[in-house]
Measured scan of single mutants.
Amino acid sequence: VTLFVALYDYEARTEDDLSFHKGEKFQILNSSEGDWWEARSLTTGETGYIPSNYVAPV
């Protein structure tokens, strides 16, 4: 499993987005949709879409 870490804070803009804080780690569930990836936060357990340019591989 490839994990990603948040480089910046992000505040959700829609109900499908996932808010997160810098340093939070994610498991990517689906990265085939372009710039927005479906991810699960390893901190909160919540699932939603995150901007791929806000995260980097651990």
Rank of each mutant, 00 (worst) to 15 (best):
V1G: 15
P57A: 10
L7N: 04
P57I: 08
L18H: 02
L3T: 09
G48N: 01
N53G: 11
E33Q: 14
V1I: 13
Q27E: 14
S31H: 11
V1A: 13
A39K: 00
S41Q: 05
Y54E: 01
S31M: 15
V5F: 09
N30I: 06
S19F: 04
S41G: 03
D35S: 10
T47I: 14
A6N: 00
P51K: 07
E38C: 15
K25W: 15
S31C: 13
Y49N: 08
V58E: 10
N30L: 06
V5A: 05
D16L: 14
T44H: 04
A12T: 05
G34S: 14
V58C: 10
A12N: 05
T43L: 13
S19P: 05
V5S: 04
T44V: 02
S32Y: 10
L18P: 01
G48C: 01
N30K: 08
E24N: 05
D16C: 15
S31P: 09
E24F: 04
E15A: 13
D16Q: 13
E46A: 13
A56C: 08
N53Q: 11
P57Q: 09
V55L: 12
E24M: 06
R13N: 10
K25G: 05
S31Y: 13
F4T: 04
G48M: 03
L29V: 08
D16V: 14
D35Q: 12
L18E: 00
T43S: 13
D9P: 07
T43F: 10
G45W: 07
S32I: 11
T47N: 05
N53Y: 10
I28E: 01
P57W: 05
Y54S: 10
S19Y: 03
E15Y: 10
Y8N: 06
L29N: 05
F4N: 02
N53V: 08
Q27R: 08
F26T: 00
P51Q: 06
V5C: 07
A39F: 02
G45Q: 07
E15D: 13
N53M: 10
D35R: 08
E33L: 14
E33T: 12
R40W: 07
D35K: 10
T14H: 15
G34P: 14
V58H: 08
E15H: 11
G23I: 00
Q27G: 03
D17P: 02
K25P: 05
E38W: 15
K25T: 12
K22I: 09
D9I: 02
A39W: 01
G34Y: 10
T2E: 13
T2S: 12
S41Y: 02
P51V: 02
F4Q: 04
G48I: 02
F20Y: 01
A39H: 00
S19A: 07
G23Y: 05
A56T: 12
E15W: 09
N30V: 08
A6E: 01
L29A: 05
R13D: 09
T47C: 08
T43I: 10
S41F: 03
W36E: 04
P57H: 06
A12R: 08
V58R: 04
G45V: 02
H21C: 12
Y49I: 09
E38I: 15
W37D: 01
S41E: 02
Y49D: 03
A6D: 00
T43Y: 09
E15N: 12
G23N: 06
D16F: 15
I50S: 00
P57G: 05
L42R: 04
L3W: 10
A56V: 14
N30F: 07
V1W: 11
P57S: 07
K22P: 04
R40H: 07
V58N: 05
Y8L: 09
Y54T: 05
A39D: 00
T2A: 11
E33C: 12
V5W: 06
R13Y: 09
D16A: 14
I28Q: 02
Y54M: 12
A6R: 00
R40I: 14
L29F: 07
L42I: 11
G45H: 08
A56I: 13
F26A: 01
P51R: 07
K22Y: 06
A39P: 00
R13Q: 15
Y49G: 04
A12M: 04
E33K: 14
W36Y: 12
Y49C: 09
K25R: 13
L7A: 03
E33M: 14
P51T: 02
A12E: 03
I50R: 00
V5E: 11
E11P: 05
Q27D: 08
L18S: 01
L18T: 02
L29G: 04
P51M: 07
D9N: 07
L18Y: 05
L29M: 09
K25M: 15
L42E: 08
G48H: 02
E24A: 06
K22T: 08
G48R: 02
W37C: 04
V55W: 01
K25A: 07
L42S: 04
G45T: 03
D9W: 04
Y10M: 03
E33V: 11
G23C: 06
G34V: 14
F4M: 09
G34E: 14
D17N: 10
S52C: 10
H21V: 15
R40D: 01
S52P: 08
E11I: 13
S41M: 06
T43M: 10
V5G: 03
S31W: 13
Y10V: 02
T47V: 14
E38L: 15
D35T: 12
S31R: 12
Y54N: 03
E38H: 14
D16W: 15
F20T: 03
E38A: 08
G23S: 03
Y8I: 07
V1P: 13
Q27W: 14
P51N: 09
V5Y: 12
Y49L: 14
V58S: 08
R40M: 12
F26R: 00
T43Q: 10
R40C: 07
L42W: 06
W36A: 06
G48T: 01
F20K: 00
P57V: 08
G48F: 03
A12L: 02
S31F: 15
G34L: 12
T14L: 10
E33H: 15
G23V: 01
S41N: 11
L42N: 04
S19N: 06
Y10S: 03
G45L: 08
L42D: 04
K25V: 15
V1H: 15
Y10T: 01
T2P: 14
K25S: 07
V55H: 01
